Computed example of a mutant assay.
Amino acid sequence: MVFTSNLDGVSNPIKEITKISHQNDSLFLIDGAQAIGHQKIDVRDLDCDFFAFSGHKMLGPSGMGAVYIKKKSAEKLRPLIVGGGTVEDSTYESHKLLEAPLKFEAGLQDYAGIIGFGEAVKYLKNVGFENIKSQEQKLNRIISEGFKDLPQIKIIGPANSELRSGIINFYHQKMASHEISLLLDKTYNIMTRSGRHCVHSWYNSRNINDSVRASVYFYNTESEAEYFVESIRKIIKLA
């Protein structure tokens, strides 16, 4: 289950859901890619069986990720791929695997990616996750407040901006989202993402074509948030 939604930035009550899962004798895997770069997370406190996350979502290299596996779960799992570095011994008829995590890491690893990922983690820890969360909420509040007098702009997610992390996902009732995103890029040098954000079924069920998603982070400033709002004001005048 996803910890924090990439659609609207809302975090699920993941610890409570993990508990319910275990009460029903189920293993529980958390997709933490959207959460781990934005808040302090303790996998032991969550008591999850698996926690997967991506490097590029936390200032690390793309194509790099990691997964936490609870020890008793790791002992039961067999690797998808075996080969160099995963096997303690073998014959023509059988093989003996090394203990986790080695049995899951066949062949040469992306060592440059691992080093870069590690440095990104150190950097974020130095910045401080409470500082990151506070700055995201401040910027989201500025943008959300700035949209309040734009009735044709609809924000996806709860009205309380503090529940949406650093995500401001919105659509215009008349203007195409791709057009808005392109104008933000070409005219105002603001990068956003337009589309259905990997949740087509959600959009189809609500008869919403698509949306523009802006993602703020701790390196963004209040003046940039205000500039974003003013840019949207100018763009929608073209509708």
Rank of each mutant, 00 (worst) to 15 (best):
G107Q: 08
K70P: 04
S94A: 04
Q135R: 15
E75V: 10
I69E: 07
F117R: 03
L124E: 15
V82Y: 03
A120Y: 10
V67A: 03
I69R: 04
S73C: 14
V121R: 08
I132G: 07
S73Y: 10
Y68T: 05
E105C: 11
F104N: 01
G116N: 02
S94G: 14
N126K: 10
G118N: 15
Y92M: 12
S94C: 10
L124S: 13
E75C: 06
V82R: 02
E93D: 13
P101M: 04
L97A: 03
G118W: 12
E99Q: 07
K96W: 07
N131G: 05
V82Q: 01
Y92H: 14
G85S: 05
T86Q: 14
E119C: 09
K103N: 02
L97F: 04
V121G: 05
N126H: 09
P101T: 14
K76D: 06
E105M: 13
V67W: 00
A74H: 05
V127Q: 10
Y92D: 13
H95W: 12
D89E: 12
A106G: 05
I114E: 07
F117P: 04
Y68Q: 05
K76I: 09
T86L: 14
Q135M: 13
K70F: 01
K70A: 09
A100S: 12
A120I: 03
L102V: 12
Y123A: 15
E88S: 06
L102I: 11
E105R: 12
A100T: 11
D110W: 10
L108D: 15
V82K: 05
G83Y: 00
S134N: 14
I114V: 09
V121Y: 09
L102W: 14
Q109K: 15
E119A: 12
G128A: 06
A112V: 15
P79A: 05
K76F: 07
L80M: 13
Y68W: 06
E88V: 02
A106Y: 06
E99Y: 00
K122C: 07
L77E: 02
S90Y: 01
V87G: 09
N131D: 10
E75G: 06
G116K: 05
E119F: 08
T91P: 03
K103A: 00
P101A: 11
L108R: 15
T86F: 12
K76G: 03
L97S: 02
G116A: 06
K133H: 11
K96A: 00
A106H: 08
V87P: 12
R78P: 01
L102F: 15
L80N: 14
S134A: 15
E99H: 02
G84H: 04
F117A: 06
